[in-house]
């Protein structure tokens, strides 16, 4: 565990709270892609299946392999799952009337199918858990596509949405730094699958980061994209 990893997880956690705060404060989910949020619930569901194993060990008081890191990871996994499902729940119940589904036009199987095929071919182990974990890594890298398309179509984002996107995009960039740090300081095998996917994921936010920093520099309230 290192400072880059901890700050990455906290930035990721912040992204959930920014989005939930924005949806609750404005009582609206306008400009937020439901499809991207749905993809994130699928990402965490496929990635954190080992939760059942860890929780099973805890309720049977088998603490032999439970380390502090495992506790931290378990706590964060539960938080991430709860937050992402809550967001999807909010968008389909309380805030359904404000949903932007008409403009949320990205075709999901364009990312689901390639990720599933890639996970079956390029994985570390051909086991259900590992293939689902790998699928979640690939899917998370492109899950932001529907949101980016919606943002481009809208042409601009209010400040909270842009801070949300910065947090979601920034956390994986910090994970890349964490991997470099671990590679340099630990006998750590660099998981090239997570590396490449993490790099693609961060790159996808690239032009968004550019407009975000331009907005910060120019002190604009809303993020403007070239229409």
């Amino acid at each position: 565990m290192n400072i880059f990893r901890i700050s990455a997880d906290l930035l990721h956690l912040a992204s959930f709270f920014i989005l939930i705060f924005k949806m609750k404060a404005t009582k609206s989910c306008k400009g937020i892609s439901f499809k991207t949020q749905l993809m994130y619930t699928l990402v965490f569901t496929c990635r954190y299946l080992d939760l059942f194993h860890v929780l099973g060990m805890m309720i049977t008081f088998n603490f032999a392999h439970i380390t502090g890191l495992t506790l931290y990871n378990t706590f964060m996994k539960i938080l991430f799952l709860a937050a992402s499902y809550y967001i999807v729940y909010l968008m389909r119940t309380e805030l359904k009337s404000t949903s932007d589904d008409a403009r949320d036009t990205f075709v999901l199987w364009h990312i689901l199918a390639p990720c599933a095929v890639l996970a079956l071919i390029f994985n570390a182990q051909f086991t259900i858990l590992e293939i689902l974990w790998t699928f979640s890594i690939y899917l998370e890298a492109v899950a932001v596509m529907p949101q980016l398309m919606l943002l481009i179509e809208t042409g601009e984002a209010d400040s909270l949405s842009s801070h949300y996107m910065f947090a979601v995009g920034g956390y994986r960039a910090l994970y890349l730094v964490n991997w470099v740090y671990r590679y340099a300081t630990e006998p750590y095998y660099s998981n090239w699958i997570a590396w490449i996917a993490g790099f693609v994921q961060t790159a996808l936010f690239g032009d968004f980061f550019y407009y975000y920093f331009v907005k910060i520099m120019s002190g604009d309230a809303a993020l403007k994209l070239p229409t």
Binding site: D9, M57, H65, T70, N73, K77
Partner: peptide
């Protein structure tokens, strides 16, 4: 063995 199926990150 770590109960987290070999992945110790989120």
């Amino acid at each position: 063995v770590s109960p987290e199926s070999g992945h110790d990150e989120l």
